[in-house]
């Protein structure tokens, strides 16, 4: 054997030894274990479940995520008088908004355009009208409807402003999804491989540790005590909208309004959208809920690989 061949072999062996060593190291790490946090985010009951071989590291990460959630809450909360959204609604404009606010409004516009206004971030005046104890006067609805118009909302990094006085935005149909996305992506950036983030919407990072997609049960909208089906989810988001979730205090319907009529939409009892990102899934499920079965395909086509499971009031369901 010539020395040069021996040398080549040695180089090859050393080059191979590194990946082998890495594999060996991997195998010492044991099975990932879940760490879970429960709490509230933007009014939604929230949970984060993170799988890691190092539970201490996972719980530190979850701990830090709560600060990010708190930061985003200070932007999107409708109930904090000092939140960016509240300031926008109060003053009609806002200088130097946060990047997050601009991004959510951009996404809102995208879905609003795709759904021809069925999803509209400026729905808040209608909502405020229905939040009272009595069904609103139809004439009042008539007067408020022109205030619901996303095209009058301009959102730039330099400033956000409404085109008409008394307009107001509600990001309920998208902000939770955005927060879910942020946290899921942060966890992914921290190097975690598997997580289920439920911050109002559900988004899954990676797969379950047994290399199977997570299975997410869908509540049966007609019998809330039962699960009507299961969705396999890996590296994707699931958003469920349904009128049964939130009845209106005035008893006239649910929280999903049709911006054309100003009344509750009710042609579908539940819409579950599966999309790569929660914010988009969130907005699309609201839009489809309002627009009805016929518009589902057009709305879903704005986001590649998005699909939906629609449940009709009679309990039958269809996948789009």
């Amino acid at each position: 054997m010539t020395p040069s061949r021996r040398r080549t072999l040695r180089i090859l062996a050393a080059g191979l030894a590194v990946p082998l060593g890495v594999l060996g190291l991997q195998s010492t790490q044991g099975l990932p274990r879940p760490v879970r946090w429960q709490g509230e985010a933007l009014g939604a009951v929230s949970a984060m479940t993170l799988w890691s071989v190092d539970p201490a590291r996972a719980s530190r990460a979850l701990w830090r995520m709560q600060f990010e959630i708190a930061r985003l809450e200070a932007i999107f909360s409708l109930f904090r008088p000092d939140s960016e959204l509240s300031r926008l609604n109060r003053d009609g404009r806002i200088e130097r908004p946060s990047r997050d606010m601009v991004e959510v409004l951009d996404l809102s516009r995208r879905i609003a355009e795709a759904s021809r206004g069925m999803f509209d971030p400026t729905i808040q005046p209608l909502w405020a009208l229905h939040a009272g104890s009595r069904a609103p006067d139809p004439r009042l609805i008539e007067r408020v409807l022109p205030l619901v118009d996303y095209t009058c909302l301009t959102a730039r990094r330099s400033g956000i402003q409404f085109g008409r006085p008394n307009m107001a935005a509600s990001l309920n149909g998208i902000a939770q999804g955005y927060v879910t996305d942020r946290i899921t992506e942060l966890l992914g950036n921290e190097g975690f491989e598997s997580a289920v983030v439920e911050l109002g919407e559900t988004r899954v990072l990676g797969q379950a540790p047994d290399d199977r997609p997570y299975s997410i049960g869908l509540v049966n909208p007609n019998v809330p005590g039962r699960i009507s089906g299961q969705v396999a989810l890996a590296n994707a988001a699931l958003s469920v909208s349904g009128g049964y979730g939130q009845a209106l205090p005035d008893g006239t319907g649910n929280h999903l309004f049709d911006p054309r009529s100003g009344l509750s939409a009710g042609s579908l009892s539940q819409v579950a959208v599966i999309a790569p990102k929660s914010a988009l899934a969130d907005a699309m499920s609201t839009a489809i809920c309002v627009a009805g079965e016929g518009a589902a395909l057009a709305i879903l086509s704005t986001v590649p690989s998005a699909r939906a499971i629609l449940t009709r009031p009679d309990g039958t369901s269809v996948e789009v």
Binding site: I216, V219, P221, I227, V231, S241, G245
Partner: peptide, 8 residues
């Protein structure tokens, strides 16, 4: 299922 999703 592992998790349950529904509106609210």
């Amino acid at each position: 299922p592992d998790f349950v999703a529904g509106a609210t």
